[in-house]
Write a protein that binds this DNA or RNA. Sequence first.
RNA 1: UGCCCGAUAGUAUAAUGGUAGUACAACUGUUUUUGGUGCAGUUUGUCUAGGUUCGAAUCCUGGUCGGGCAACCA
Length: 556
Amino acid sequence: MSEERSLNFLEEIIEQDIREGKNQGRILTRFPPEPNGFLHIGHAKSICLNFGLAAQYNGKTNLRFDDTNPLTEDTRYVESIKEDISWLGFKWDKELYSSDYFEQLYQFALILIRKDKAYVDESTSEAIAVAKGTLTEPGVPTPGRLRSVAENLLLFNEMKQGKYADGEMVLRAKIDLASPNMQMRDPLMYRIRHARHHRTANKWFIYPMYDFTHGQSDSLENITHSVCTLEFVTHRDLYNWFIKELDIFPSQQYEFARLNVNYTVMSKRKLLQLVNEGFVSGWDDPRMPTISGLRRRGYTPASIRNFCEKIGIAKRENIIEYSLLEFCIREDLNKTAWRRMAVLDPIKMVITNYPADVSEDMVGENNPEADGGEGYRNLPFCKDLWIERDDFMEEPSKKFFRLGVGLMVRLKHAYIVKCDSFLKDKNNKITEVHCTYIPESRSGSDTSGINVKGTIHWVSALHAKIAEIRLYDHLFQIEDLSGEEADFKEYINPESLTSLSNAFIEPDLGNAINGKSYQFIRKGYFTLDSDSLPGNLIFNRTVTLKDASSKGNKKI
RNA sequence: UGCCCGAUAGUAUAAUGGUAGUACAACUGUUUUUGGUGCAGUUUGUCUAGGUUCGAAUCCUGGUCGGGCAACCA
């Protein structure tokens, strides 16, 4: 209990609120996604924050879909969002929709019109933009600003009844056209959209804007702490203005810096382009930074939650290194993933002094990190094996601990072998490595007294199963995509996906379970892809193992 | 050019006027039948100029740099 964990700025605010008895100490947060795309790792940060704060201080969190734009939103996205939040391990209190408040919001608008705090404006969108002025010059009124309350009421009601076409008029708040905060220069409250909404169907012809929806939705739900990202800082004045003018529960908005991760993009708009234009196979492509993509890639909920914990919460712009995400998944999987052997890029090894018609079973523990190893599996061994192509070097360097003519290695869970010769085809490509094994060196009963520096993995050529293995690299070639707007796609990494269709896996992996992760010894963590079928196994590489071997070689 | 945020090792994040710490990354050693894991260690930092103070990363002022705001998107 003496452990001192420092508080982030939101925890400090909340603890102060509790100390001061604000809202009787009640804490209610919300996670407010717009159902117009899939959730990504940046949303995970927000989810962990909102649900985490509530859990920490005895509060609750609502899931509220911010669905005020019928043109982009879809129930399909609602379903994926719910699945992703649940998968991450969070439970919302209430499932709500901004569209549930459309009638209430309409009533709020009427109140503001009657107070002469809102007016119908039939200016074009361009004219309104011009009249708002610029960052350095104040705005000027449009003709609609002078309209009487009675006429505003009439026109707004006609807007609601569908009497006008899209874009013909809007409802605006009457605040201050000279405000240094552009958001306060008579912002739009309602626009006309003759469009079908995913929940209210064709009931409405007018739809409220974000600013006229979000704060009041928070207020209606009695949200105490409405946490959003930094780009909404300038909206806070407006958020408070509507609440004050309507005299409703004063929810408060706080802003934190959104998550960025290097070598990827974190904008639904850009991710949607990658999907629509076929750069990836879908929202859940394992290269995508989406929750569903990470899940398919083999990331676990715990690893993502841990990542969100480690990155911290603050108000400055940040780009987190991808390697931190990789650390988090390795940390989790190292403790839990069962070890298996798979040869991704095979060459044949022939053990010349091993009888041709014999095989014997070796045993390998499932998990060396767990007490008792979590059991064992059999590894059939015979004269012909598959080993990794790069575990053999024709002219090995001094620091190469693996195979070359005259060198010895341990075959993991089996014998020590000595390399005698190798064969090449006419293209000068190595096809076979010939070795002799040391019978007394059998794993577990080694009396040979020989110590070897290297251990390599292998599978029996007679018993191995074949599989496709998909290797992934960064989606983009540059770290920071923030400066690249229109042309971000030019930086897509053409080698972000490598598919190996001729890999050999140990027999037990034929029983690989969907959703379970395996460590392919010395190669990384892998999981079955959702494209996989019983007779056509496909594994995704989640992440490689940390590899210090390249350093040793570089030095020579 | 107006308003608003922000600035601590390569990347993040603490230190709330009193020893600049932690994680990742990098590097070294050690253990190891995974060049994995574990363990031990090393390197690297307060944007700048003034001011207040016994004492400033912290408070004040000016500057510099980065970001946001002028969608009928959220």
